[in-house]
């Protein structure tokens, strides 16, 4: 691929119109379910629970007919970051305190010790990150930009009654989404235009100030362009009678069907289960076997 090629991939997500049962759910349910499950995964720390969580996400991916290879591609991109995080985790984990609390030591080098508890926490973290990335991939595979917009808008709309600027917020979201491909294309064009004048974007030499200055030929025009487009759009919107969310009607009406309620209930139930499950005894057994 050329030095500039990557930018057209910057559109939101990798939506795959598979037509699975998950695809046909109300967009609000798709979004809420992922948020709720993601929340549960972020809160828990137990290895066994996170392992179950990961299995659950894999199951959902299968239900959504997302090919495993496609899903894992997102994880593969994560590997370098994962490596760094895990290394930091290993170094900064309070191993000594864990030893005092009863965890066996696994390895020692001078004053530095690695406890079993530390390694377990490491693996748990790993599982959590993978599960969350897969969950995000699931969301973007079953919901495209428009679905997400409808979901956000639909969820916030009831709040309009109490004076919350739901429509305005949703509009901010829509407009940001629809400008993404435009700005990505512009960025590519700018890189090419400056490269045509001899700019060399390849190497990260020089002091931080120099390196920042080197991005000006891209950022300044992009910013100016984005602001200009925003102003033009604002004028066009006003010309079409936009006056905020009050008194507006809507073409798209989301209606929850039985299947949607069931799916939402299932998602909430699973999230609650993940939050409630205590498999601490399994971890203790694991330590004992390692010790």
């Amino acid at each position: 691929m050329s030095e500039f090629g990557a930018w057209h991939i910057l559109t939101l997500g990798h939506y795959l119109p598979m037509g699975s049962p998950l695809h046909r759910l109300d967009p609000r349910v798709r979004l809420l379910s992922v948020l709720v499950l993601g929340g549960a995964l972020m809160v828990r720390g137990q290895l066994a629970v996170l392992f179950l969580g990961l299995l659950l996400v894999l199951l959902l991916l299968a239900l959504a007919r997302v090919p495993l290879g496609h899903a894992l591609r997102g994880v593969r991109a994560l590997v370098p970051l994962l490596g760094v995080v895990l290394l930091l985790q290993l170094l900064f984990y309070p191993h000594r305190r864990a030893l005092v609390a009863g965890s066996p030591a696994l390895w020692q080098a001078g004053r530095f010790v690695v406890s079993a508890a530390g390694v377990v926490a490491l693996v748990a973290l790993c599982l959590r990150m993978v599960a969350l990335v897969l969950l995000l991939t699931l969301l973007t595979s079953i919901a495209d930009a428009t679905d997400l917009v409808h979901a956000v808008e639909g969820l916030l709309r009831p709040l309009q009654g109490i004076g919350f600027p739901a429509h305005e917020l949703a509009l901010v979201f829509v407009i940001a989404l629809r400008f993404l491909p435009l700005l990505a294309r512009e960025m590519e064009r700018l890189m090419k235009a400056q490269a045509a004048r001899g700019a060399d974007f390849g190497h990260g030499r020089g002091y931080i100030v120099q390196r920042v200055r080197r991005t000006f030929p891209l950022l300044v025009p992009l910013f100016v362009l984005a602001l200009r487009r925003a102003e033009e759009l604002a004028v066009a919107m006003e010309a079409r009678g936009y006056a905020g969310g009050k008194g507006r009607s809507y073409l798209v009406r989301l209606r929850m069907r039985h299947a949607d309620w069931l799916a939402l209930a299932a998602a909430v139930a699973l999230a609650v289960l993940l939050l409630w499950l205590d498999l601490g005894s399994l971890e203790q057994a694991l330590f004992r076997s390692l010790g």
Binding site: A236, Y242, R248
Partner: peptide
């Protein structure tokens, strides 16, 4: 500018933007 006049991510929803602002029934 053709790039700066549409609001929505779907053609028919963008066409509806104006009438929606007028609060017309579905």
């Amino acid at each position: 500018n053709p790039e700066s006049q549409f609001v929505a991510t779907v053609v028919e929803e963008d066409v509806a933007f104006g009438p929606e602002n007028l609060g017309l029934p579905e």
